[in-house]
Structure formats: C-alpha cells, structure tokens
Design a protein around this nucleic acid. Sequence first.
RNA 1: GGUCCCUUCGUCUAGUGGUUAGGACUCCGCCCUUUCACGGCGGCAACAGGGGUUCAAAUCCCCUAGGGAUCACCA
Length: 484
Amino acid sequence: MSTRVRFAPSPTGYLHVGGLRTALYNYLFAKSTGGTMVLRIEDTDRTRFVEDSQTNLIESLKWCGIEFDEGPLQGGDYGPYIQSERFDLYSEHAKILIDNGSAYYAFDTSEELDAMREKQKAAGIAPKYDRSTMRSQYTLGEEKTKELLAEGAPYVIRLKVPHEEIKYEDLIRGKVSVNGKDVDDQILLKSDGFPTYHLANIVDDHLMEITHVIRGEEWLPSVPKHILLYKAFGWEMPKFAHLPLLLNQNKQKLSKRHGDVAVEDFKQKGYFADAFTNFIALLGWNPSGEREIYTMDELIAGFNIEKVNKGGAIFDRRKLLWMNSEYLKAKPVSELADKLIPKLEADGIDYKSKEYVEAIISLLRERVDFVEEIPSFGDYMFGDIKGYDEKFMSKQWKDDTYSSIKPLLDELEGLTEWKDEPIHDIVKNFVETSGLGFGKVMNPIRLMVTGKSVGASLTLTMELLGKVESFKRINDFLKLKNEK
RNA sequence: GGUCCCUUCGUCUAGUGGUUAGGACUCCGCCCUUUCACGGCGGCAACAGGGGUUCAAAUCCCCUAGGGAUCACCA
C-alpha cells in the first residue's frame, strides 16, 4: 500500500519555520516512499482566520521546494481540502459517536466551565471536565437532553473518555502510554457547529486515507484523544510520528515573540531557498553526520523517519548564515546575478551589464553572506567612490607616499593591456626594485581606487573598473590631496 | 501543580555493547596573503548524576536531577 501524508496548517497568518520543518519532513517522507503529499487547510476556528494566509502558506512552501500532489489548488479524489467546505461531515460523524455511546451532549456555559475550573484549582486538582456534576447528558437525563436540543439550546458534543490505559507506538518515540483518567472529555463539536481540531483531524485523516501522521511534538499530549476517536469509529489508525520541537536560544518552542519565525522573513533577508531548506532539514535529522550540504533530492534519498532525533533542536542563526554563504560560494554566478539585478534596478543603480554584475559577484562573493550585500560592500564598483575610509587614509597616506609610488603610477599609466596579470607584474616588479613591500604600495592605491580598506584582489578590481576609471579615481584623490 | 516527552562539545549532530567518542558552526592559533575574506593546517570543548546488567556500556534496565511540551467551545 502506498503512503499518504498531509500537511495541515491553519490559515492564521504566515508559515512558521516550525511548520516548514513539519511540512518538509512530510514531504521527504512522501517522496522517499513514493507516496502522496496532501495539503489540507484546517480553518475550523473562524475567530483566528486571516485573509490570504492560504496563498501565503502555499507560496512559502513552494519557495522551499515543497509542492503537493493533492490540495485546494490541484484538487484530488479526496476533496474538498478545506475543512470549512466539509462542514456537514463533522456533525454527521459526531452524531455517530453520540449514537454509539462514545460521546455525549453538554450544555454548560463558559462561565460555568470557568467556575468549575476555579473550584478544581482551589482544591488542588487538575482542571478537567466533570461529566457527573456538570450539565451533561448524564446529569440531565435523556428526557431533559432531548428537550433542550429540541428548544435549540446551545450545546457541545464531548468525547466520553474511558478510564483505561491508552497505549501506542510512535515511529520516533517508541512506546507511549497514558491513562484515560488523566485525559479530559474533549469537546468534539463546538456550539457554533464547527468541529474542534481533534474531531475534524481524525475524520479527515481517515476519509483522506492518510497512512502516516507526521506532526510536531506539541501534539503528543492529545494523541490519546485521537486514538480513542479512531477506536470509537472503529477505524484503522494511521502510524504516528511526533517531531521534536524547534527551539529558540532559551530552549523554548520557537515563537513569534522572539525574532523572525516566518519563512518569508528569511526569504526577504536574502537567504537562498535551498540553503534555508537544507539548514531546516538538518535540524533533528541527519543522513550521515559528516556532510552538511545536500540537495533536496539527496535529502529525499537519505530520509528515514525512524532516524529523526527525539530531542528538540535550537535554531542557530550563525550556522544558517554559514550555510547561506556556502551556497553563495557554490552557485553559478549567472543565477546570482539574476537574483541581484532586480534589486539593483529597484535601487536605481547603474550596473552596466549582466556580465559586469557577474564579474563583480565572482570578485566579492567570498567576502559576504548574501548576494544582496554586494552593492554596499562593493559600492565603489557601481558608480563613483562614495567617500574615503578616514582611518585607513590617515594610516596609509603619508607625506611621502605620493613621491614613493609615483614611478609605479606612471608605469601603469603607460600600460596598454589593462589586465590583472600585466598590472600585477608591474606592481610586483616595482615592489622588488623599490624595496617598499606590497602593503606600502597597494594600500595607498586601494585607498585611491576604492576608498575602502577591505576588498578583493586590487589588481583584479582595477581590471574590472578599467584603466580610465581607475586613473580618474587616482587623479581625483591626488587633487584632493593637492599632490597634483 | 497533574500528565506526557526529552537529555553526546556553547550550538547542530555521528554513534545502536569493545572508538584515542567523529564531523560541522562558533571561538582561538598558525600558514597562504596587498587589506578583508576564502582556503589549508591545528587547538579548546561533550556522553547530566547515581545505581545496576555485562568480561566490556554513550549505547540495555532502574532511580534522581534538569529541561521542554501540554492541560481552551485554538490549532
């Protein structure tokens, strides 16, 4: 039997990096087992619905290379794939549970429930719905219950949790067991007629023939409810795999409160999609332990759900930054130029040609973490010099500097083949004959040509800039210093 | 607090009874070098603690400690 997995986000905003990791592992599992990847939108909480988040979610996922076989956009044999469009299904199924005694009606108001919890808290016991004292079907009796329902009184349907040991085998965690007495009588159908996550999730997973439920560890405590539900319906259970959490620096669940957690924030910051996905994939799982850089296909080929770690993983931005720079050094310059040029255009920077941009990128890519940093890091490659580094200038430009390097400048001015190698040869020769040392010679020239203290090979930089521009800058500087 | 889950360098991890406990990020040193990087070489740094089982335990079992998740008519 082929595997079917689903990613089931709520449309409450943007794609969270934790959500991405869950989606990614589902995707890797589906692809590595030749299975089907389903997208299901869980929008049963109308109060948290955010417009456009479905589109947003799908776009972020797509950016990371995750696409679906079935879902709201592409359809499929198990649709609809949006829970609000499956509305009737849930109440029908809740009724089945009422009829077979696995669930019951309750009529408590939220005030009554609050009062109950207050009392339990004061008594030092765990807050839990008390089916024998609250206004449930059991305390009210069949007659009264029917009467209330007929009157149209607001009600919810709750799961009748038996006090028995509930066990299951998790693909990642192994045996897990909980006693039913510690499990609350979960509301399955809310008074607005919508199902809660628990009901909708189980009904849909069954109807969509999901074989493996791969989700975050935060769901672990509610697994007993889900198992009970499968049993109550008499359905076969899928296999469960609960992923370790993604943690912040304080070892707590990554959340919106601490910095960027939206995938699109990382996109906007300039991270490469493949670098970012690569990094996320290795948080909690690793195909070898030695290698770090993998393509999506390699991740798929090596994926094994049972080798996923149990412990949470801290999201380390420094390592992500490193990974991005690795991709930056390895990608074809043409691809990098395609990423950079729209930004240059948006900023109104004259970049001459794509070839020129590519040359600048290959000159500077080793010195930055993002390709977008190149226009500011190497601002002197685009248009005029933006100013001189004062500290560098006072250190490198002394009263006798001009006189000592003037012979070299004269020789360079006479050079006809303005290329890296001949320029370098002349400089090298000058350094040897003058006995000045490379630093004494090159730093002043770097200052005149780039204005900065750091940068790539100066001779290559000058070649790229061209002889005319290079000397224009040198002369401008000399005028400024009244040397000419 | 109840319940559940987790625990190898600061961080991500390899490791499934016998290893000098390996790799990567970070940090430090050296080399390369016109600067800054890149690259190369090297270094610091871990099996939470305690009991068992075993000839042998990071690996299996138990206890303790610590951390986390969860306890809604949210997912």
